[in-house]
Amino acid sequence: MDVMQEIGSSLRNGDAKKVAELVQQAIDDGVPAEEILNNGLMSGMKVVGVLFRDHEIFLPEVLLAARAMTAGVDLLKPLLAGGDVPTIGKVVIGTAKGDLHDIGKNLVGIMLKGAGFEVVDLGNDVTAERFVDAALDSGAKVIGISALLTTTMSSMKDVVDLVRERGLDGEIRTIVGGAPVSKDFADEIGADAYGYDAASAVEQVKALAGV
């Protein structure tokens, strides 16, 4: 097994210490940082995402893998151009206005980062204006809105409506998710996509962003 495969395997096992050791070994061997990132960490995380989507591993294992990935990325950052990790797109996420339950949103953010997205996390209790302004300011093409309560789901429609009112539909896409949210609800409010869970949210965001 070469070092890239070993990194992927250790990532899958959530072994942050081993991932850091292997990434350092690859750096010391002169492997370019971009190659370690893409062929070791990102491809390893992609496998983790597929295993989770297929219900072969559980969420805590995904989070341990994400922690291991961070350990590796931290070593690569100084070696990457400008110290920036290359991303495949930007996504703005937050919980709907009135909702303080941010665990689901946080998990989606971690999975998106693992998939290579830059995530602008607005936190919880986010107004429609903040969502749209943040997308415009950051250049994000996708807004992800999460809600745990049926009573805050209506705030999701405010975001979708505001995107339309500002003539940004088609330019900025919206995806909604959370325990009480359904595909029917997403269709009803005119959202562009619905994330059943964190794994499907990542797939949907990729489709929306065209990557």
């Binding site: 805590p60 994400a66 665990i103």
Partner: peptide
Amino acid sequence: LFDHGDAALGYTLD
């Protein structure tokens, strides 16, 4: 824990 990037432990504590 979440702010410090330890989502695995943060989620479990949650």
